[in-house]
Design a protein around this nucleic acid. Sequence first.
DNA 1: AATATTAGTATCGAATCGAAACTAAATTAA
DNA 2: TTAATTTAGTTTCGATTCGATACTAATATT
Lengths: 185, 185
Amino acid sequence: MLLHEYIERISRLLDSEARLIGSDYNLQPIQLNALNFLNRANRYSNTLQGVTAYLGLTKGTVSQTLATLEAKGFIKKIPDKNDGRVVHLNVTRAGQKLLSKAMPSATVQSAWEGLEDKEQKQLIESLKQLLTTMQKINGMNGFGVCGTCRYNQKIGEKKFFCELTQENLSQKDTELLCREHQLAC
Amino acid sequence: MLLHEYIERISRLLDSEARLIGSDYNLQPIQLNALNFLNRANRYSNTLQGVTAYLGLTKGTVSQTLATLEAKGFIKKIPDKNDGRVVHLNVTRAGQKLLSKAMPSATVQSAWEGLEDKEQKQLIESLKQLLTTMQKINGMNGFGVCGTCRYNQKIGEKKFFCELTQENLSQKDTELLCREHQLAC
DNA sequence: AATATTAGTATCGAATCGAAACTAAATTAA
DNA sequence: TTAATTTAGTTTCGATTCGATACTAATATT
């Protein structure tokens, strides 16, 4: 099937590129991937379990990856104030600096800019639908932003409320990826 | 960027799935990937160097992967008749049987079928363009089929000629992936 | 108060991966 | 025709990923 061939090939390119970019900073592709996720994850998701669900790996594996990232100074572990078991993973300034240089890759960026406005919209729309369906079938978490989440309620000017966690959310909160995301539809 | 996020996520899903499917046959994701490529590669590309270029890895690494595939009976090494250095990698019947069960993954297949005809076409078209541009920027080989290759000449009913290799090609030949592929445009 | 669940760590062995050094065949240059 | 170079492929090494398993500690449940 053609679709599979294309996606496979694009994935391969991205992986190659991640390996190349990562080598500049002495980071493995998976580490770069985890770091990039953490930089986009909200406070319910920037934990070991969040990364584990996102990457689809076991927690033991992810624990090692995160240990490396911490040792290299790209993330910092912050214990949760309410739950003694939970440790939040904050991307340090060094980590953010690295990401701003490395992500998204220059190749994707350029290829994206090579598309016309209409094609960009089409592509995003098609990919979104494909991804949504795949996640539904696969049973993997959705990891969307609050804007498309059924738990999200607007309660004022730039103020939101999550019905799942029963907490208020700022505008900025709602722009981050959440592991509890449930598509509203 | 949204595009990067989507592709990253789809790649991650595919990798997870490849790991799952592969475990049924005691194959690693990369091995499944290589096997799938070899099954689609033409006679100029079904070699170690072909796989190396396709996967974007070093030849030492790929050599090990292929050794494993051979040991498990999914590929067979056939020395080239004209060039003593070259070894062709043929997918065995067992390998083909495995692939027909495992590829493309059920998830991709289902997600694909969930799209309408028009959306399918759009998606393929957008992905093709994205991939083409990415490959151009990245400098990676194109790995297309002869139909879109500048070296390909039609010389009769279901008969073709490759200007690069100076060889005749059958209809079936022209449906396989080639590492020397150069987009005609 | 006892049990179960959840978050995270530590250790092990199998596998990927790049780097580097190697063999052998083919091509190019002298 | 011989010597140097390039190309196809293998082997070995050490760092890293990965899953499996067993573990600690905190929270939830009964």
